[in-house]
Amino acid sequence: MIRHFTLDGKKIPFREGQTIMEAAQDAGIYIPHLCYNPEFVPHGSCRVCTVKANGRIVASCTTPATEEMQVENETEELQGNRRELLQMLFVEGNHVCPGCEKSGACQLQAVAYYTGMLAPEFTYFYPMRTVDSSHPDVAIDYNRCILCELCVRASRDEDGKNIFSIDGRGINTHLTVNSASGKLGDTDFDVHDKAAQVCPVGAILPKHEGYNIPIGQRLYDRKPISVVGDVADHQEE
């Protein structure tokens, strides 16, 4: 039986067990998100997809839709909250869009533009982070990791390799590699692994390619992310 809930005043159908995010995506409605990828179990950590369901603040990617639920998504209040979250993500890491090879095809940048964030406003943390270039085909730039855990989930759930994990607590939380040296080059990671395809930012990148796509033809150069979709949807192009 098809049931419905209301999203920004619009009636949205959903199936039993679907989350607000899944039902909204099926209906062609965009809810901004970073750590959500429909191929993996929702994680609910980035909080960018936060909506108001019956007046409660919830992550739309982990909250099941219910009959006649009243959901707010594109309100100025929620967009404002998202901008604040994104502001914090930008200053916690070292996200230098103008020089970054992922610029124009980066989900963090695209979601920031979508929510109306044009520049970081908080004080930069300038954390000391490194680049792991030990693997012949793939580099990890830890400066850009936003801890979405998509690589962790992809490596564990689809590749069956368990190469990535999240270590540390609080502000010291960081991505770590499962090898004695901590280097990607000492794992059996392969450039064709699913974990190499899901990074929404410029943290896990194929080496030697960089800026091969000219400005104007990059993923989000012409249309916003609400129309184009996620980075992971376009990895094979």
Binding site: G99, V131, K207, G210, Y211
Partner: peptide
């Protein structure tokens, strides 16, 4: 120093 070589033309032009 420590940055990937393919970034150089874009980084140093700044």
């Amino acid at each position: 120093q420590g940055r990937p070589y393919w970034e150089l033309p874009v980084l140093v032009q700044r």
